[in-house]
């Protein structure tokens, strides 16, 4: 069952990756990387139980903290970056 969960999380990771690499809104991309971080946390947790090492849960928790702080920093900086125009309107 944990193997199925791992596979499902991997599929969702691939979907988030596709969303982040397709052209789109800035906030779609931020949401994609945020979701990818969440999926990494979930994957590590599920993989820990899959290989019967529940202490991976601590690593997953630390990842969640890093992910949270990273997204906050990204959002704070995006206010300044996202306003710049694309080269089509520049040139």
């Amino acid at each position: 069952m944990f193997a199925a969960a791992c596979l499902g999380i991997l599929v969702v990771m691939a979907l988030a990756l596709v969303r982040a690499s397709l052209p789109g809104n800035v906030y779609d991309r931020i949401l994609a990387i945020n979701m990818f971080g969440t999926k990494t946390v979930l994957f590590i947790a599920a993989y820990g139980f899959l290989t019967e090492r529940p202490d991976f849960l601590d690593i997953a928790l630390t990842y969640a903290l890093i992910n949270f702080i990273g997204i906050i920093a990204v959002l704070k900086l995006v206010e300044r970056v996202a306003g710049t125009a694309s080269p089509e309107t520049d040139e």
Binding site: A14, L17, A20, R29, I30, F36, G37, Y63
Partner: peptide, 28 residues
């Protein structure tokens, strides 16, 4: 996939986001 997308894209903001995703995959 993430590495190829980083190389192909011209939007540097998306490249930074994808580099973060790349690091998360590497960490996993």
């Amino acid at each position: 996939i993430a590495a190829v997308a980083v190389v192909r894209l011209r939007d540097l903001f998306a490249v930074v986001m994808l580099a973060g995703i790349y690091s998360l995959i590497t960490a996993a």
